[in-house]
Nucleic acid binder design. Sequence first.
DNA 1: TAAATTAGCGTACAGTTGTAAGCTTAATTA
DNA 2: TAATTAAGCTTACAACTGTACGCTAATTTA
Lengths: 200, 200
Amino acid sequence: MNRQQQKLKTRRAIIDAAFSLLDDQHSFSSISLREVARAAGIAPTSFYRHFKDIDELGLTLVDEAGLALRQLMRQARVRIASGGGVISTSVDTFMEFITANSNVFRLLLREHTGTSNAFRAAVLREIQHFTEELTDYTVATTGLNKKFANLQAEAMVKLVFSAGAGALDFDKIQRQQLCERLKLQLRFISTGALECAKDL
Amino acid sequence: MNRQQQKLKTRRAIIDAAFSLLDDQHSFSSISLREVARAAGIAPTSFYRHFKDIDELGLTLVDEAGLALRQLMRQARVRIASGGGVISTSVDTFMEFITANSNVFRLLLREHTGTSNAFRAAVLREIQHFTEELTDYTVATTGLNKKFANLQAEAMVKLVFSAGAGALDFDKIQRQQLCERLKLQLRFISTGALECAKDL
DNA sequence: TAAATTAGCGTACAGTTGTAAGCTTAATTA
DNA sequence: TAATTAAGCTTACAACTGTACGCTAATTTA
């Protein structure tokens, strides 16, 4: 095995270990460097061969989480193209994501309101990215003016994330109900934005 | 001084100390029992004369934060009664609150997505309380059916809290812009809910 | 007044943390 | 092949954590 390959492999082990340590009871800020090292199967001090400190690892996790989110969006777009309502399909795709990757979503959720400026900024970037793409989509498909489309997209993303946060504590049936409520609320927003645009 | 009075005074000192230690860089889970004791001017072990453990203190903080929030609602209602738009007045009142009590709001925001089930449940209760009151208000003033009024209220509260989270990192001018955007988004929801109710 | 209660303190201890220093060993380079 | 590089290890240390135990002193109760 290559030296570079080995290093990448260990780096991956560290990242995977960190993700595996996150659950409903453990946030990133609550896990220690030593815990991560233990889970990754390396000595505590070896950690420094890969990351300057635990925060640098954290930012890497946020980046990876953002990447997963963007892939999710692409998946949703493919599904929409092959039939099904925009709102319904997007919400379903999102809910599938947080069910399969709850720890990844939890990370974004917590660091969004966390104690590190850098983390908050990183999560915010990902969310804004999400919002921008939705804005463009809305302008293209509905012809709503850009400002309103952006307001609508922002409100929708916030609502979806908020619902996602709630879904983490729910079982399957409760999630189903949550989804239906969310879809109606998103319908309120899209209908309201369109109606308000008339009054300009 | 009474023994009971003295005990209450110390208890208050602990609670105030805990609140004072919260800021953008320090969440409740990141502060230690010893830090709180130090800030309250008591010995670490004396802490246990007042709280079973640090979590019991945390729940007390959440309760107090919820109380402050409910008082805020009453204040908003008084303001609405004496003229001014419902949405505009509520948003302004809310923003004044998080400006003056940012640490209190930060606590709710973080524990809402935190690692303790008890904390999350406690914050959720406060938010639901908030939502219920808004639902009743909406039914009474607009005649919207209860289900839609509840969906509308929930969406609005989520959006307001989400905007509040963003406001914490903003300066005065940015907050002003945020407020205007938020008000428009709330308008979308109220208009949309009304419009969607027609289609029943 | 005597006895009981209790808020608060000091000491102590075992466990955990981040990380500095230097060694080993295997891959890379010259 | 010999010299260099570097990933990972072991050991070590000071700082901090929560909390058990027993004492003191002052208030409350009998």
